[in-house]
Simulated assay, not measured.
Amino acid sequence: MRLVLALCSLLLGVLLFLAGIFVVLPYFGLGAAGSEVSARGTAVAQQCRFAGPIAKSQAPKRENVIGFGWICRARVHWSDGSVQWREVSGSQLTDADVGEEVAVVERQIDYSRGSDTRPQIYRADFEPNWFLAGVSVLATCLVGFFLAALGFSGVSRRFKGKSPAAS
């Protein structure tokens, strides 16, 4: 029974640690912090899907999106009068937004420190929060690391012939 508990602790710890990186960090959109707003408009989501941890994207460069979240295909009406079909990732639009007008901005996200800037759509009222992101990721990863270490300790003791309770 203790082996099962140790294995569950190890698995939960690893999952929490990875969730801190692949779920919590992307949720706060830290890539948008300090980025330039290049356009404003409204988006109407037509269809949305929940995907992750790695999902195919039809965004401008057709790369993969890392993390869990909503990816929506939306018709965007820009303030300059142009209209585009765009894919909006990072849960900036969700299935609750299908058919609704949502104010959006396009930000130029710098992925490689000046050498690779890509446009990405965010809700107009979305502001990345470094402090909340840091605290949330740190807390999630630390709890995950603690549980994984506890589980690993129990599993290693069990396989060395010692009982996890007999220390």
Score class of each variant (00 low, 15 high):
Met1Val: 14
Met1Leu: 14
Leu3Pro: 09
Leu3Val: 10
Val4Cys: 06
Leu5Ser: 04
Leu5Asp: 02
Leu7Lys: 12
Leu10Phe: 07
Leu10Ile: 01
Leu12Ile: 12
Gly13Thr: 02
Gly13Ala: 10
Val14Gly: 04
Leu15Asp: 06
Leu15Gly: 10
Leu15Tyr: 14
Leu16Val: 04
Leu18Pro: 05
Ala19Pro: 01
Ile21Glu: 00
Ile21Asn: 01
Phe22Tyr: 09
Val23Asp: 13
Val24Glu: 05
Tyr27Gln: 11
Gly29Gln: 12
Leu30Gly: 13
Val37Asn: 02
Ser38Tyr: 00
Arg40Met: 10
Thr42Cys: 07
Ala45Lys: 02
Gly52His: 02
Pro53Lys: 03
Pro53Glu: 11
Pro53His: 04
Ile54Gln: 07
Ala55Asp: 07
Pro60Ser: 13
Arg62Glu: 09
Asn64Met: 14
Phe68Pro: 08
Gly69Val: 01
Ile71Pro: 03
Arg73Ile: 12
Val76Gln: 02
Val76Tyr: 02
Trp78Asp: 10
Trp78Val: 09
Asp80His: 07
Ser82Thr: 15
Trp85Phe: 02
Arg86Tyr: 01
Val88Pro: 02
Ser91His: 05
Gln92Ala: 06
Thr94His: 10
Ala96Met: 09
Val98Pro: 05
Val98Asp: 05
Val104Trp: 00
Asp110Thr: 03
Ser115Glu: 13
Asp116Ala: 10
Thr117Gly: 02
Thr117Asn: 09
Arg118Trp: 12
Arg118Cys: 06
Pro119Trp: 07
Gln120His: 10
Ile121Glu: 01
Asn129Thr: 01
Trp130Phe: 07
Phe131Cys: 06
Val135Ser: 04
Val137Arg: 03
Ala139Ile: 13
Thr140Gln: 09
Thr140Gly: 08
Cys141Tyr: 00
Phe146Thr: 11
Ala148Gln: 03
Ser156Trp: 12
Arg158Lys: 10
Phe159Lys: 04
Phe159Ser: 03
Ala166Pro: 03
Ser167Gly: 15
Ser167Gln: 09
